[in-house]
Design a protein around this nucleic acid. Structure first.
Length: 177
DNA sequence: CTTCAGATCCCCT
DNA sequence: GGGGATCTGAAGA
């Protein structure tokens, strides 16, 4: 497993571009001394002027990580599940919805809550971490998905019509097709 | 202080 | 395919 850790120049771009480019990248967690690796197959973008985004009403205690700058990890809890996001520009982020297991991963990685559980990601320990310099990060090993689909997001009640969801066509690990 | 909705998951039918 | 679990944070009074 070789590749290059994604740097600031990757995250500091248009959020929709980042969401699309995250597909096929490796997500690594080295928490607990074990190196867990998955390949991202599904993402959703949440913008600043976006009623469905946590940042829509400005910075709050919960979403403060979304304003810490490109390459920050934003983890939040809902319904007893954790969901992880990659922050791009201030107040914008990409939700990692699903991935396929690559190395040292047992359990389901289909769906944001299950993915976090499989990787051992949780809000108390990981919210606000930097993907540029911590034990959770992204890697580009040169792999590029053949076919990417752009469509509407899942599980939200506002701005349902915006095509901010991306997934790898044909992957059996996408949370919904 | 109280209310309530939520970027989900799991189990039941 | 639908509802309940059962927690957190934000909004409303």
């Amino acid at each position: 497993m070789s590749g290059k850790r994604l740097g600031l120049e990757f995250y500091d771009r248009d959020t929709l571009e980042v969401a699309k480019d995250l597909l096929g990248k490796l997500l690594i967690s080295e928490k607990g001394g074990e190196r867990k690796v998955v390949r991202i197959v599904e993402t959703e973008a949440y913008l600043r002027d976006d009623p469905a985004s946590h940042s829509y009403r400005g910075e709050t205690k919960r979403n403060r990580s979304m304003f810490k700058g490109p390459g920050t990890l934003y983890v939040y809890t809902m319904h007893r599940q954790n969901c992880m996001n990659v922050v791009t520009k201030r107040g914008e982020a990409v939700l990692i919805r699903a991935a396929e297991p690559v190395e040292n991963v047992s359990g389901n990685t289909r769906g944001p809550g299950r993915l976090c559980r499989a990787l051992g990601i949780n809000r108390a320990e990981d919210d606000g971490k930097s993907l540029l310099s911590s034990d959770v990060y992204l890697l580009d090993d040169g792999f590029r998905p053949e076919d990417v689909v752009q469509t509407t997001r899942i599980g939200i009640s506002k701005a349902k019509d915006r095509p901010y969801r991306f997934y790898v066509k044909g992957s059996g690990y996408v949370s919904k097709r």
